[in-house]
């Protein structure tokens, strides 16, 4: 019986997820013509069996389309509603949801866009979707006490160089080839977006007081945070060295280190290095 039920459920899954609807799905079932669905699903004069399965098919697609629209508002804006609809259709064929939580439904959307022909016309779109996904993941990332000014004051000055720091679980260091943060910001602020500069940038994404923020980092800050953005973290001395090697004004290295540290502590970007992990992320993957 379990095998019969399994076969029934698999048939319904195929019909519900058929890209162009239940009729097309039925046509693709060599052992099951449209008339024979009536041997499985009850129908009446109001709705035949295919129409009844169609209620689920429509709900499946539009529920997931709405989730993708909500999770990728800037990608939606750039692609336009019609094109986004088609992208969602293709995405759900290639990446049908596998996780119990619908939160994960869009987890591969950036990777899908990376190899989609739209990337030839809108080359930054996969990075934009990647950044939107990372912002969402930061929102839900684990809670861990961030390093703040008070915590640093408890550390003796002579112990600072060896003090290990890591990025907070909600902090993401995102390598981009396009300034997609500018597109996301424009859409969030309900402004007209423009094609972003094709310029390599590192975007820092972090969470403070349950809100997610992001900004571009200069090379010195990027190098320092990349150093801290690994499982083992980095000690403060190494972070200072990374900043010094890329500081635009060698005379201002102490001042730059101070300004960056004050900012990181205020934003909650770092944690005590002995606590948790983080990884460098490619926005398009």
């Amino acid at each position: 019986m379990a095998r019969e039920l399994a076969a029934l459920q698999k048939l319904l899954w195929r019909l519900v997820t058929a890209p162009s609807g239940v009729a097309e799905g039925l046509a693709g079932e060599p052992d099951l013509g449209a008339d024979r669905l009536g041997a499985i699903i009850a129908g009446d004069e109001r709705m035949d069996p295919a129409a009844r399965v169609g209620v689920y098919a429509e709900a499946y697609f539009y529920r997931l389309l709405e989730v993708l629209k909500e999770d990728f508002p800037a990608t939606l804006e750039v692609a336009g509603a019609d094109q986004f609809h088609n992208l969602a259709t293709g995405y759900l064929i290639d990446y049908p949801p596998t996780e119990p939580s619908i939160f994960y439904a869009g987890q591969h959307f950036a990777a899908y866009l990376h190899t989609h022909p739209i990337a030839d016309r809108v080359p930054f779109i996969s990075e934009l979707a990647g950044l939107e996904r990372i912002v969402l993941e930061s929102f839900h990332a684990a809670d861990t006490p961030a390093l703040d000014d008070a915590a640093m004051r408890t550390i003796a000055p002579e112990a600072w160089p060896a003090f290990a720091m890591r990025t907070h679980p909600a902090t993401r260091i995102v390598a981009c080839a396009w300034r997609v943060d500018q597109v996301l910001r424009a859409v969030e602020e309900d402004r007209a977006w423009r094609t972003p500069a094709h310029a390599a940038a590192t975007i820092v994404v972090w969470r403070r007081a349950a809100r997610v923020y992001y900004r571009a980092a200069d090379p010195a800050e990027s190098a320092a945070l990349a150093l801290a953005d690994v499982d083992s973290g980095a000690n403060f001395g190494a972070i200072c060295t990374a900043i010094a090697e890329r500081a635009p004004a060698p005379d201002d290295v102490p001042g730059l280190i101070q300004r960056l540290l004050i900012r990181w502590l205020a934003d909650g970007v770092l944690i005590d290095g002995n606590l948790t992990d983080g990884k460098i992320v490619d926005a398009a993957r």
Partner: peptide, 11 residues
């Protein structure tokens, strides 16, 4: 869901 795929619906 079935076959490791989730329909996110209650069938």
């Amino acid at each position: 869901g079935v076959g490791g795929r989730n329909l996110h619906d209650l069938l």
